[in-house]
Design a protein around this nucleic acid. Structure first.
Lengths: 134, 134
DNA sequence: CTACACTCCGTACCATACTACGGAGTCAAG
DNA sequence: CTTGACTCCGTAGTATGGTACGGAGTGTAG
């Protein structure tokens, strides 16, 4: 029968056993049925859900956001537009992060270019730039 | 005389008092002289150092990296090239982060475009995409 | 001289996402 | 029927960068 232990589930989804328990505690995975021994029992759907979580994480959603996403899906009154809105917000987040990193990079490149890479640190333009007003 | 309390220092550098104590514990700030009362005593140099830390943080260095940067500066045997190397590594880090974010954004945009933003979540292409293989 | 702001200290707590530990019970192969 | 792998549980630790707390002592303005 298609019933998996936590270890089998974890392996199939490519995460650790402790991670499954952690997600359960955090409410990302439903509390599973138990065998008489107390062992957790999972079916195929949970593998799918774990993979959903993995992919959403790869897309930059935090666990809390993923939890929301999952509950959106369960709620019959939420619309596709709700989900689209979350995604759009996440795209904005990502764009903001990219802009910040590009600013950081630009400043670092500028400062690095001024350095001829020789001599002691006393004359290092990188450290001097950090010393001065940004 | 130019001697500041921890609160004055924090204010001048634009950080919190607890942050100063935190940096001291982490070894980013030297253990300061104390007044007979036990109050920490700071001079202008520490303001500069705190600002150095702030700017390095803005450039994407972690506190540990900043600590290294600061010790590089104090060590007379390190060269400007050493510092330049750190900066180059940091630029690589930043570029890698940007690439990752751009991949995430692309995937999200693709999935969002497929969504016409209407109907229930049963037919939401965004959630479906997360369900399927990435 | 009193009131109030500031400082001292260690410790605990915040969020994020796990990972590890240890002792006890369970399952399956040989 | 033993052995070894797996599972149970709660708690604690990891890394990051701080923030908050509380009781005691200090500094200073009025």
């Amino acid at each position: 029968m298609a019933s998996w232990t936590v270890g089998q589930l974890a392996k199939r989804a490519g995460v650790g056993v402790e991670t499954v328990r952690f997600y359960e505690r955090k409410g990302l995975l439903a509390v599973p049925e138990r065998k008489p021994s107390g062992y957790r029992q999972y079916d195929e759907e949970v593998v799918d859900r774990l993979r959903f979580i993995k992919r959403a994480k790869e897309l930059g959603f935090t666990l809390n956001e993923i939890k929301e996403l999952l509950s959106l899906r369960l709620d019959p009154t939420t619309t596709c537009a709700d989900v689209k809105k979350r995604s759009a917000e996440k795209i904005d987040d990502i764009e903001a992060k990219i802009r910040t990193l590009q600013r950081m990079k630009k400043a670092l490149v500028k400062v690095t270019k001024a350095c001829r890479g020789r001599g002691g640190t006393c004359e290092c333009p990188i450290l001097e730039a950090l010393d001065r007003e940004g």
